[in-house]
Design a protein around this nucleic acid. Structure first.
Lengths: 232, 232
DNA sequence: ACGGCACGTGACAGCGCCGTCACACGACGT
DNA sequence: ACGTCGTGTGACGGCGCTGTCACGTGCCGT
């Protein structure tokens, strides 16, 4: 399942787009400012970025440039949104590395179409990728999880949670971050819910606390066998 | 080498497309009218048809239907071209069995990409290919399906769905992906429709859930017989 | 040692997902 | 015109998933 990062400071427009993308079976994350977008882009590793040109802090073009400058986000396709359909804007958009360009007003349907077309072109998002950490193994394509080459049955949510943790080995994730990234940006949930799911995950994985570590007062993190303690 | 039949009465557009397809290493044939297209289709046996919706004599939809009605050309993938991106057109296009849909104006590059994607998807040519997975067997040429060497009668849609699933064994397909890939890019269908057809498929195949697995909260996948942990 | 707080854990209720059935509608052949 | 077949959709029920609460437990500072 692909994740789309929506960057727009017009809340109603953003939520409209978010709704339609979700209906189309895509995951979404929303950023209201350019800085927030750059932060989220490295956190949630989106498969595509929907980027408004007009942002309150930095311009969409600069966001675009900085996304391209970061090796982590260099490959992410970018679709620009703009109020004016001027040729000049179009050219500028493509110059900084946008993959497509949609002018307002646009129909949500059309936007979804373009997004899907670009996703397909860029390989369709998650393509049978495999994540490994110690005895743990995640197959994104088949949506299967293994511990020591033995399959464990996880629910969709557990898989997503583990996927999120395992892609950031050694990095502490607060409960709020996890709620925001795994559950979605608008989830009025108790932070303790995370605890329960971490518990269930540990139980199913069998290997318990050695892999999913508790950082008291902060959150959770995956053990990083490569660099046991050294991290900031 | 695959051959593409271009059907369009706008000579300049057709030659532009032709040029780009040839550059991409594909053979081409051009028809200016619908009747000509139907004649050529049986003569050159193209591997894909690029079909404009607006033709001087008969409508592109009728051409589509008649291509589908002829056993000789039934299997040929069809990509529709249209000036308007109206939803109504889109739906009509898919109803008559188009495999993809491109709205003008389009970039030649994108068109070539789509054509190649569809060619790849349809098996790269029209040679009675056979797909096997466990007790299941699909004969693409004769459009027949077998379970344990016993023929099962599938409808066109069921066959297409099974074909799509079986060519990606072990990979989870979301309902949205299936709707998009089997039904067409933006079919405005309920995702529950997929459930019903999967059920009918399981029913006809007899082997039930062991082959077509449900991944709760995600989608469906075919069982993969070989061990996934065997990895380089 | 003690108390407070953060976390682990089990139980439980609600609900969302999915299988299944029945029906409507359109296309097509007779 | 009629019947048949293929297909999409709504309804319904069951069951698994999930969020929350309550309580137990361990950790840490004082």
């Amino acid at each position: 399942m692909s994740t789309i990062l929506i960057v727009d400071d017009e809340a109603d427009l953003a939520s409209l787009v978010e709704f339609n993308l979700k209906q189309a079976g895509l995951d979404t994350a929303v950023a209201l400012t350019g800085e927030q977008a750059l932060q989220l882009a490295t956190r949630v590793k989106p498969d595509l970025v929907l980027l408004d040109l007009m942002l309150p802090d930095i311009s969409g073009r600069d966001v675009c440039r900085r996304l391209r400058a970061n090796p982590q986000t260099r490959e992410v396709p970018i679709v620009m949104l703009t109020a004016r359909g001027e040729e000049a804007d179009r050219v500028q958009g493509f110059e900084v590395g946008a993959d497509d360009y949609v002018t307002k007003p646009f129909s949500p349907r059309e936007l979804v179409l373009r997004v899907k077309a670009i996703l397909r072109r860029s390989g369709g998002g998650s393509t049978g990728e495999r994540l490994v950490l110690g005895p743990l193994e995640l197959d994104l394509g088949s949506h299967r999880a293994y511990v020591a080459s033995e399959e464990v049955e996880l629910t969709a949510l557990e898989f997503k949670l583990l996927h999120h943790l395992i892609s950031r080995p050694g990095r502490v994730q607060t409960r709020e971050q996890l709620l925001s990234d795994v559950w979605g940006i608008t989830s009025p949930l108790e932070t303790r819910t995370v605890d329960t799911h971490v518990m269930r995950l540990r139980e199913k994985l069998g290997v318990g606390r050695e892999l999913v570590e508790t950082v008291r007062g902060v959150g959770y993190r995956m053990a990083d066998p490569q660099r046991p303690e050294a991290r900031a």
